[in-house]
């Protein structure tokens, strides 16, 4: 329990330990722990930024989807409108054509009727002449009455 020179040696031992730890242990630990703290903070910041970016991208994607949906609807509307127009136009065209065909057919039918009527008249006239000549066999001289008969036949034919 007496104080003696031992404590001088003990002081030297302590100072060497203090020097060693202060030089080789605590600076390394302090630096590496600081670096790790910075890294963790950076990582958290990056994660936060990533989440923000993701939200932004989702918003943008939603906007694009909404816009394209609207455009698709517009295009669909336009297409259906156009096809309706085309159908209407085709209908009008077809009706016009139909009317024209009907009119042409009517004209032809009328021409044919007239022609048939003319022929009928001519045939009827000649039949009348033949009948009359048969009835008047004697009295009718073909030579003298020919002029009259032709005139009659013409009148009938003209109707």
């Amino acid at each position: 329990m007496t104080i003696n020179a031992t404590f001088i040696g003990q002081i030297i031992v302590f100072l060497i330990l203090l020097w060693f730890i202060g030089k080789f242990v605590t600076p390394v630990l302090a630096e590496e722990l600081n670096a790790r703290n910075r890294k963790i903070a950076d990582g958290l910041a990056a994660a936060e930024k990533g989440q923000k970016d993701l939200a932004e991208a989702t918003n943008r994607a939603d906007a694009i989807i909404r816009e394209s949906r609207e455009r698709a609807k517009q295009i669909e509307d336009q297409a259906s409108r156009r096809s309706n127009e085309a159908i209407e136009a085709a209908k009008v065209l077809a009706q016009g054509e139909g009317a024209r065909i009907v009119a042409a057919a009517r004209d032809e039918a009328a021409t044919e009727t007239n022609r048939a009527r003319d022929q009928l008249r001519k045939e009827f006239g000649s039949m009348v002449v033949v009948g009359a000549s048969r009835l008047l066999e004697r009295e009718v001289d073909a030579k003298t009455h020919a002029q009259l008969l032709d005139k009659l036949a013409d009148e009938i034919a003209r109707g």
Partner: peptide, 8 residues
């Protein structure tokens, strides 16, 4: 040992 503690 008192020398040991008093040194520190």
């Amino acid at each position: 040992d008192l020398n040991g503690t008093i040194a520190i």
